[in-house]
Protein backbone atom coordinates (compact mmCIF):
# COMPACT_ATOMS: atom_id res chain seq x y z
CA UNK A 1 0.00 0.00 0.00
CA UNK A 2 1.43 3.42 -0.91
CA UNK A 3 2.70 5.28 2.15
CA UNK A 4 0.43 8.33 1.67
CA UNK A 5 -2.65 6.10 1.96
CA UNK A 6 -1.46 4.75 5.32
CA UNK A 7 -0.72 8.28 6.52
CA UNK A 8 -4.12 9.47 5.29
CA UNK A 9 -5.90 6.64 7.08
CA UNK A 10 -4.04 7.44 10.30
CA UNK A 11 -4.92 11.13 9.95
CA UNK A 12 -8.58 10.22 9.34
CA UNK A 13 -8.72 8.21 12.57
CA UNK A 14 -7.00 11.07 14.42
CA UNK A 15 -9.64 13.46 13.03
CA UNK A 16 -12.48 11.11 14.08
CA UNK A 17 -11.19 10.31 17.57
CA UNK A 18 -9.32 13.44 18.69
CA UNK A 19 -12.45 15.42 19.69
CA UNK A 20 -13.83 12.42 21.60
CA UNK A 21 -10.54 11.79 23.42
CA UNK A 22 -10.19 15.47 24.31
CA UNK A 23 -13.61 15.42 25.99
CA UNK A 24 -12.74 12.25 27.89
CA UNK A 25 -9.44 13.65 29.17
CA UNK A 26 -10.99 17.00 30.13
CA UNK A 27 -13.71 15.25 32.12
CA UNK A 28 -11.00 14.28 34.65
CA UNK A 29 -9.50 17.77 34.74
CA UNK A 30 -9.80 19.33 38.19
CA UNK A 31 -9.34 22.85 36.76
CA UNK A 32 -12.57 22.75 34.77
CA UNK A 33 -11.03 24.97 32.08
CA UNK A 34 -10.21 23.29 28.78
CA UNK A 35 -6.84 25.06 28.42
CA UNK A 36 -5.21 24.32 31.78
CA UNK A 37 -4.62 21.00 33.51
CA UNK A 38 -5.32 21.24 37.23
CA UNK A 39 -4.70 17.63 38.16
CA UNK A 40 -6.75 14.44 38.03
CA UNK A 41 -10.17 14.59 39.68
CA UNK A 42 -13.48 12.76 39.72
CA UNK A 43 -15.20 15.90 41.02
CA UNK A 44 -17.33 16.44 37.89
CA UNK A 45 -18.59 12.86 37.94
CA UNK A 46 -19.63 13.38 41.56
CA UNK A 47 -21.52 16.54 40.58
CA UNK A 48 -23.38 14.57 37.90
CA UNK A 49 -24.45 11.87 40.33
CA UNK A 50 -26.08 14.45 42.60
CA UNK A 51 -27.82 16.48 39.89
CA UNK A 52 -31.52 15.52 40.09
CA UNK A 53 -32.35 16.92 36.62
CA UNK A 54 -29.71 14.76 34.96
CA UNK A 55 -30.72 11.65 36.91
CA UNK A 56 -34.42 12.13 36.09
CA UNK A 57 -33.73 12.68 32.38
CA UNK A 58 -31.38 9.68 32.24
CA UNK A 59 -34.12 7.54 33.79
CA UNK A 60 -36.63 8.80 31.18
CA UNK A 61 -34.20 7.92 28.41
CA UNK A 62 -33.75 4.41 29.77
CA UNK A 63 -37.55 3.89 29.88
CA UNK A 64 -38.03 5.20 26.33
CA UNK A 65 -35.11 3.16 24.98
CA UNK A 66 -36.15 -0.08 26.72
CA UNK A 67 -39.80 0.06 25.64
CA UNK A 68 -39.13 1.23 22.08
CA UNK A 69 -36.40 -1.38 21.69
CA UNK A 70 -38.64 -4.19 22.92
CA UNK A 71 -41.44 -3.22 20.51
CA UNK A 72 -39.15 -2.53 17.56
CA UNK A 73 -37.13 -5.73 18.02
CA UNK A 74 -40.28 -7.89 18.03
CA UNK A 75 -41.96 -6.16 15.11
CA UNK A 76 -38.73 -5.61 13.16
CA UNK A 77 -37.66 -9.26 13.43
CA UNK A 78 -41.04 -10.53 12.23
CA UNK A 79 -40.91 -7.96 9.44
CA UNK A 80 -37.46 -9.16 8.37
CA UNK A 81 -38.64 -12.80 8.31
CA UNK A 82 -41.69 -11.85 6.26
CA UNK A 83 -39.73 -9.72 3.81
CA UNK A 84 -37.01 -12.32 3.23
CA UNK A 85 -39.55 -15.07 2.53
CA UNK A 86 -41.73 -13.09 0.14
CA UNK A 87 -41.32 -11.69 -3.36
CA UNK A 88 -38.94 -8.69 -3.64
CA UNK A 89 -40.78 -5.37 -3.70
CA UNK A 90 -39.09 -2.06 -4.51
CA UNK A 91 -41.88 -0.06 -2.85
CA UNK A 92 -41.54 -2.03 0.38
CA UNK A 93 -37.75 -1.67 0.35
CA UNK A 94 -38.17 2.10 -0.09
CA UNK A 95 -40.56 2.17 2.89
CA UNK A 96 -37.99 0.29 5.00
CA UNK A 97 -35.14 2.55 3.88
CA UNK A 98 -37.02 5.86 4.35
CA UNK A 99 -36.65 6.17 8.16
CA UNK A 100 -32.87 6.11 7.80
CA UNK A 101 -32.76 8.97 5.32
CA UNK A 102 -35.66 11.29 6.27
CA UNK A 103 -34.16 14.33 8.05
CA UNK A 104 -34.90 14.05 11.78
CA UNK A 105 -36.48 17.47 11.86
CA UNK A 106 -38.99 16.54 9.15
CA UNK A 107 -40.08 13.34 10.90
CA UNK A 108 -40.18 15.30 14.17
CA UNK A 109 -42.57 18.00 12.94
CA UNK A 110 -44.60 15.47 10.95
CA UNK A 111 -45.17 13.39 14.08
CA UNK A 112 -45.87 16.46 16.22
CA UNK A 113 -48.53 17.60 13.69
CA UNK A 114 -49.97 14.10 13.50
CA UNK A 115 -50.13 13.54 17.28
CA UNK A 116 -51.72 16.97 17.71
CA UNK A 117 -54.29 16.29 14.98
CA UNK A 118 -55.40 12.95 16.45
CA UNK A 119 -55.23 14.47 19.98
CA UNK A 120 -52.71 11.92 21.23
CA UNK A 121 -51.31 13.10 24.59
CA UNK A 122 -47.63 14.02 24.24
CA UNK A 123 -45.13 12.61 26.70
CA UNK A 124 -42.83 9.62 27.03
CA UNK A 125 -45.50 7.50 25.26
CA UNK A 126 -45.36 9.63 22.08
CA UNK A 127 -41.54 9.57 22.10
CA UNK A 128 -41.68 5.77 22.33
CA UNK A 129 -44.09 5.49 19.37
CA UNK A 130 -41.81 7.78 17.35
CA UNK A 131 -38.59 5.96 18.22
CA UNK A 132 -40.12 2.63 17.20
CA UNK A 133 -40.44 4.03 13.65
CA UNK A 134 -36.70 4.34 12.95
CA UNK A 135 -35.81 1.40 15.19
CA UNK A 136 -38.05 -0.99 13.20
CA UNK A 137 -36.08 -0.07 10.09
CA UNK A 138 -32.72 -0.68 11.78
CA UNK A 139 -33.72 -3.97 13.42
CA UNK A 140 -35.19 -5.19 10.15
CA UNK A 141 -31.98 -4.31 8.24
CA UNK A 142 -29.72 -6.11 10.74
CA UNK A 143 -31.89 -9.25 10.90
CA UNK A 144 -32.33 -9.34 7.11
CA UNK A 145 -28.55 -9.28 6.69
CA UNK A 146 -28.35 -12.40 8.89
CA UNK A 147 -31.22 -14.12 7.03
CA UNK A 148 -29.37 -13.75 3.70
CA UNK A 149 -27.18 -16.69 4.79
CA UNK A 150 -29.98 -18.59 6.55
CA UNK A 151 -30.52 -22.21 5.56
CA UNK A 152 -34.28 -22.41 5.05
CA UNK A 153 -34.14 -26.21 4.60
CA UNK A 154 -33.86 -26.41 8.42
CA UNK A 155 -37.32 -24.91 8.88
CA UNK A 156 -38.69 -27.05 6.06
CA UNK A 157 -37.34 -30.16 7.80
CA UNK A 158 -39.01 -29.04 11.03
CA UNK A 159 -42.35 -28.54 9.26
CA UNK A 160 -42.01 -31.88 7.42
CA UNK A 161 -41.45 -33.60 10.74
CA UNK A 162 -44.80 -32.25 11.90
CA UNK A 163 -43.89 -29.16 13.92
CA UNK A 164 -46.33 -26.24 13.70
CA UNK A 165 -45.35 -22.79 12.36
CA UNK A 166 -44.99 -21.39 15.88
CA UNK A 167 -42.95 -24.34 17.19
CA UNK A 168 -40.67 -24.12 14.16
CA UNK A 169 -40.13 -20.39 14.76
CA UNK A 170 -39.56 -20.82 18.51
CA UNK A 171 -37.35 -23.94 18.41
CA UNK A 172 -35.51 -23.57 15.09
CA UNK A 173 -35.58 -20.12 13.49
CA UNK A 174 -35.31 -17.88 16.56
CA UNK A 175 -32.39 -19.72 18.24
CA UNK A 176 -30.46 -19.59 14.95
CA UNK A 177 -30.97 -15.86 14.36
CA UNK A 178 -30.89 -14.89 18.06
CA UNK A 179 -27.37 -13.36 18.01
CA UNK A 180 -28.43 -11.04 15.18
CA UNK A 181 -31.68 -10.20 16.98
CA UNK A 182 -29.83 -9.29 20.18
CA UNK A 183 -27.29 -7.28 18.20
CA UNK A 184 -30.18 -5.42 16.53
CA UNK A 185 -31.77 -4.75 19.91
CA UNK A 186 -28.52 -3.32 21.33
CA UNK A 187 -28.17 -1.02 18.31
CA UNK A 188 -31.81 0.06 18.57
CA UNK A 189 -31.28 0.85 22.26
CA UNK A 190 -28.20 2.92 21.40
CA UNK A 191 -30.06 4.88 18.71
CA UNK A 192 -33.03 5.56 20.95
CA UNK A 193 -31.02 6.61 24.00
CA UNK A 194 -29.04 9.10 21.83
CA UNK A 195 -31.91 10.48 19.75
CA UNK A 196 -32.59 14.17 20.30
CA UNK A 197 -34.72 16.07 17.78
CA UNK A 198 -37.68 13.71 17.44
CA UNK A 199 -37.86 13.35 21.23
CA UNK A 200 -37.60 17.13 21.63
CA UNK A 201 -40.62 17.74 19.38
CA UNK A 202 -42.80 14.88 20.57
CA UNK A 203 -42.13 15.19 24.33
CA UNK A 204 -44.77 17.85 24.91
CA UNK A 205 -44.47 20.70 27.38
CA UNK A 206 -43.04 20.39 30.85
CA UNK A 207 -39.97 18.86 32.46
CA UNK A 208 -41.51 15.47 33.26
CA UNK A 209 -40.73 13.91 29.86
CA UNK A 210 -37.27 15.42 29.30
CA UNK A 211 -34.84 12.80 27.99
CA UNK A 212 -31.07 12.80 28.50
CA UNK A 213 -30.20 14.24 25.05
CA UNK A 214 -32.75 17.04 25.66
CA UNK A 215 -31.02 17.75 28.97
CA UNK A 216 -27.60 17.67 27.28
CA UNK A 217 -28.85 20.08 24.60
CA UNK A 218 -30.09 22.51 27.25
CA UNK A 219 -26.74 22.34 29.05
CA UNK A 220 -24.74 22.84 25.83
CA UNK A 221 -26.84 25.89 24.93
CA UNK A 222 -25.97 27.28 28.34
CA UNK A 223 -22.25 26.94 27.72
CA UNK A 224 -19.19 24.71 28.02
CA UNK A 225 -19.07 23.15 31.49
CA UNK A 226 -16.92 20.36 32.93
CA UNK A 227 -20.08 18.43 33.89
CA UNK A 228 -20.98 18.03 30.22
CA UNK A 229 -17.55 16.51 29.60
CA UNK A 230 -18.13 13.96 32.37
CA UNK A 231 -21.61 13.12 31.11
CA UNK A 232 -20.37 12.92 27.52
CA UNK A 233 -17.70 10.45 28.60
CA UNK A 234 -20.23 8.19 30.33
CA UNK A 235 -22.72 8.34 27.43
CA UNK A 236 -20.02 7.59 24.85
CA UNK A 237 -18.56 4.70 26.84
CA UNK A 238 -22.02 3.14 27.21
CA UNK A 239 -22.57 3.42 23.42
CA UNK A 240 -19.12 1.98 22.67
CA UNK A 241 -19.75 -1.05 24.92
CA UNK A 242 -23.22 -1.68 23.43
CA UNK A 243 -22.04 -1.39 19.83
CA UNK A 244 -18.93 -3.50 20.46
CA UNK A 245 -21.09 -6.23 22.02
CA UNK A 246 -23.49 -6.04 19.08
CA UNK A 247 -20.61 -6.43 16.64
CA UNK A 248 -19.26 -9.49 18.51
CA UNK A 249 -22.70 -11.13 18.57
CA UNK A 250 -23.29 -10.40 14.93
CA UNK A 251 -20.26 -12.45 13.78
CA UNK A 252 -18.12 -9.40 13.27
CA UNK A 253 -20.58 -7.85 10.88
CA UNK A 254 -20.25 -4.07 11.07
CA UNK A 255 -23.38 -2.37 12.35
CA UNK A 256 -24.80 -0.19 9.62
CA UNK A 257 -22.93 -2.05 6.90
Amino acid sequence: MPRFLTVHLGATYAFLYMPILVLMVLSFNKAGLPTAWGGFSLEWYGKLATNPKILASAWNSVIVACVSTAIATTIGTLLALGVERSKPSAARDALLFAPMIIPDIVLAIALLSFFTLVKFTLGLQSIILAHVVFNIAFVCAVVRARLKSFDWSLTEASRDLGAGAFTTFWRITLPLILPAVIAAALLAFTLSVDEFIIAYFTAGAGQSSTTLPMQIYAMIRFGVTPEINAMATIVMLVSFVLVLTAQRLNRGRIPGA
Binding site: P19, D194, I216, I220, A232, G256
Partner: peptide, 21 residues
Protein backbone atom coordinates in the same frame (compact mmCIF):
# COMPACT_ATOMS: atom_id res chain seq x y z
CA UNK B 1 -15.38 -0.83 12.57
CA UNK B 2 -13.09 1.86 13.99
CA UNK B 3 -14.18 4.25 11.25
CA UNK B 4 -17.89 3.63 11.95
CA UNK B 5 -17.79 3.57 15.75
CA UNK B 6 -17.97 7.36 16.29
CA UNK B 7 -21.24 7.42 14.32
CA UNK B 8 -22.83 5.27 17.04
CA UNK B 9 -22.18 7.85 19.76
CA UNK B 10 -24.41 10.77 20.63
CA UNK B 11 -24.60 13.37 17.82
CA UNK B 12 -24.98 16.28 20.26
CA UNK B 13 -21.85 15.23 22.14
CA UNK B 14 -19.81 14.82 18.96
CA UNK B 15 -20.89 18.32 17.94
CA UNK B 16 -20.26 19.76 21.40
CA UNK B 17 -16.70 18.38 21.29
CA UNK B 18 -15.98 20.85 18.47
CA UNK B 19 -17.24 23.77 20.58
CA UNK B 20 -14.65 22.75 23.17
CA UNK B 21 -11.93 22.58 20.52
Amino acid sequence: FMAILPFWTNYLIRTYAWIVL
